[in-house]
């Protein structure tokens, strides 16, 4: 591709909108020598649904409470990610054959114990998953933000600068995952910062720190992707063929997520979109169609004045 070549970095303007991108922080203008891209690998196969991540996030980041709201959907009373919930543990209860309950938890007890089919739990499996902002390679929220409040950090993460945000709300419908939200009591948009303040001090994010099973793993994204590949292979070998990664692929519609997941069922079962695409991928086509419509409107107006006597 030659059109739109910037000449210096080797990326084209189309690369900036969609597709794989080796170094989002560098592309955003951070100088050489910036830290590696950091992210989350959330291994839901070892999530125990304790919600320590939700609590630790709220405590560290001073996120307001959402009140006591019993939703009646298993143990999930948070519901969804939002301005006041930057981690959200989903609980899915599924009827399955009893043998399928074994999840291949690493290093616990004797392996290959037959499941106790007589217990009340037989034939039910619980999927638990701690969801979070994906810190997309191509972040629609950042692309559409008119004020420059949303920005790409030196760690390749996406953060709202609250002293700039004017609460226009454009990021909210732009996010293909439904993560970012305007806080009604405040007017500005809020979401996970991947604990930007802690990262700058060499600490791991509060949720990963608090996670008792290491379901939430924090580290350089390259390492996390390798670790996740190995974990999927391990689970497949242990007879969990449904284990799959979500958001790890740089060729997906958002150029890969900075926070990706190991899931045990289809993404939509956890409330995740199966094939998200950054909306700005199609922005060139949108500007083009706007241009054509604008020319048509101008031509129509001219024709109306030239086309008659009165």
């Amino acid at each position: 591709m030659t059109t739109g070549h910037t000449g210096t970095t080797g990326t084209t303007w189309r690369d900036r909108l969609a597709g794989p991108l080796a170094d989002p922080a560098g592309e955003a203008g951070h100088a050489d020598g910036h830290p590696p891209r950091m992210g989350f690998f959330t291994d839901t196969s070892i999530c125990i649904g304790c919600k320590a991540c939700e609590v630790a996030c709220k405590e560290w980041n001073g996120v307001p409470d959402t009140g006591l709201d019993l939703l009646g959907s298993s143990y999930d009373n948070t519901g969804a990610l939002g301005a006041n919930s930057w981690r959200h543990v989903a609980f899915v209860e599924q009827r399955v054959p009893a043998e399928r309950v074994e999840l291949g938890m690493p290093g616990i007890g004797a392996p290959e114990q037959p499941q106790r089919a007589e217990t009340d739990d037989a034939g039910v499996r619980w999927l638990m998953s701690s969801d979070v902002c994906k810190h997309c390679t191509h972040a629609a929220c950042l692309d559409v933000c008119p004020t420059g409040s949303l920005f790409r950090t030196e760690f390749g993460t996406v953060v709202v600068q609250e002293d700039i945000c004017n609460g226009c709300g454009y990021c909210v419908p732009a996010c293909p995952y439904g993560v970012i939200e305007r806080r009604e009591s405040d007017g500005r948009a809020f979401k996970c910062t991947l604990c930007y303040d802690r990262l700058r001090d060499g600490l791991e994010p509060a949720c990963a720190k608090a996670c008792p099973t290491d379901s939430i793993q924090f580290g350089p994204l390259d390492e996390l992707r390798e670790r996740a590949e190995r974990r999927v292979e391990q689970l497949h070998d242990r007879g969990v063929p449904e284990a799959r990664l979500y958001g790890e692929d740089p060729d997906d519609g958002v150029g890969g997520d900075g926070a990706f997941f190991l899931l045990l069922d289809e993404p939509e079962v956890y409330g995740l979109p199966p094939d998200p695409v950054v909306t700005t991928r199609d922005l060139p086509a949108m500007w083009k169609h706007m241009g054509m419509a604008a020319v048509a409107a101008a031509a129509g107006a001219l024709a109306a004045f030239l086309g008659g006597r009165r």
Binding site: P146, T147, G148, I164, C165, N166, C168, D186, R188
Partner: peptide
């Protein structure tokens, strides 16, 4: 706007995206 007093931030940058 959630923060109407900051409406001028709209003209803080010009972003084609």
């Amino acid at each position: 706007l959630g923060r109407p007093e900051r409406f001028l931030n709209m003209l803080r940058v010009l972003k084609p995206t």
